[in-house]
Design a binder for these strands. Structure first.
Lengths: 178, 178
DNA sequence: TTGAAATTATATCAGTTCGATATATACTCG
DNA sequence: CGAGTATATATCGAACTGATATAATTTCAA
């Protein structure tokens, strides 16, 4: 599943412009999948070429032209095909955890700050997700929201319970040979 | 932090070939960061050009030439610089969760199978991580191993407790207008 | 009220990375 | 004896990110 497929998916929920699709990515798929304009706009052009979406152009006087995309019958068929396939493995990259892999090279104060910042960040994400959960309409949206809440909370708990393992090692000056 | 930087980091733990660096990515950073040969080999060439690593070539008779890379003093300095910077946000992409976002388009049986497969996959990952935890040497390795265990377990718990929300909706035929 | 910041809107581009493929040899195990 | 796995390097097209460009409008606080 690539970004092109997911644009198709978003269009099954209603017509939208590229800009609106980007917003939907952030609002509803932010936890799961990220997409930039640099991939969305070319994706929509390609989908149009392939006849999986159609495009109506509205020339606005006050703003740049707005292009509203609609999914076609063929597009719906292709999207259904895509989600019926076994999903590929998650792709995950964390610079935070990668940095901790080398915490033996860092001063204790830097490690503590790193973990403090991370906990603050996750707490803030929980807060805004919590608000989302109140307003989101469908069961599916809530399912994913609560999933995010659970994961972020588990991370905070783990860091609070185990940060001493990395911090103690740093304070003792137990440095590996470099 | 890019793959080039992380290759440098792996070389702070000892000299290695490109092939061995790939294995280290899988064994010790598998949870955190993925890198393919297609990015590692070009990265090592570039690092050599920049003088951040040095390369000795061993022509073996039985196998292709082996190139052993060592980090230079300049390389160590650059790596330290990189890990002292604030880490960028995590990058995460889950086809599994993206598919669930559209579970209202799927038959109930497919949703159940999807979730069953996911739980099995996470259980299997827990098993192999658990073995790792016994053998891994440093506190840091164990810290990251246990982090993974905690996250995977939280995911299984969440899915088992909440899967009925998606499955019930599918069985009832509560389908949104398409 | 004015000026800065955020929002609406599309588009491109260089650089990074993935996943597949190519090429060879050797070992292991049923 | 053959299939599969491990060692070993390398390239390439396609996908994707993050930055940048352009331009008008709305919002909100000083």
């Amino acid at each position: 599943m690539d970004i092109r497929t997911l644009c198709l998916g978003i269009l099954t929920m209603g017509d939208a412009s590229g800009y609106e699709i980007k917003k939907t990515f952030e609002d509803r798929l932010g936890l799961i999948f990220h997409a930039s304009f640099g991939s969305i706009y070319p994706a929509l052009n390609k989908l149009t070429d392939e006849g999986l979406v159609s495009c109506r152009e509205f020339s606005q006087e006050k703003r740049p032209d707005k292009k509203i995309y609609s999914i076609t019958a063929n597009g719906r068929y292709q999207f259904f095909d895509a989600i019926m396939k076994k999903p590929a493995a998650d792709r995950f990259r964390s610079e935070f955890l990668a940095t901790l892999m080398f915490s033996h090279l860092l001063p204790a104060s830097v490690i503590s700050e790193l973990i403090d910042d991370r906990i603050k960040d996750r707490a803030q994400k929980i807060e805004s997700l919590y608000d989302d959960c109140q307003t989101k309409m469908t069961d599916r949206d809530r399912f994913l929201c609560n999933f995010g809440l659970k994961m972020y909370q588990a991370e905070i708990d783990y860091l609070q319970e185990n940060r001493h393992l990395l911090e103690a090692d740093a304070l003792m000056g137990n440095r590996a040979a470099e």
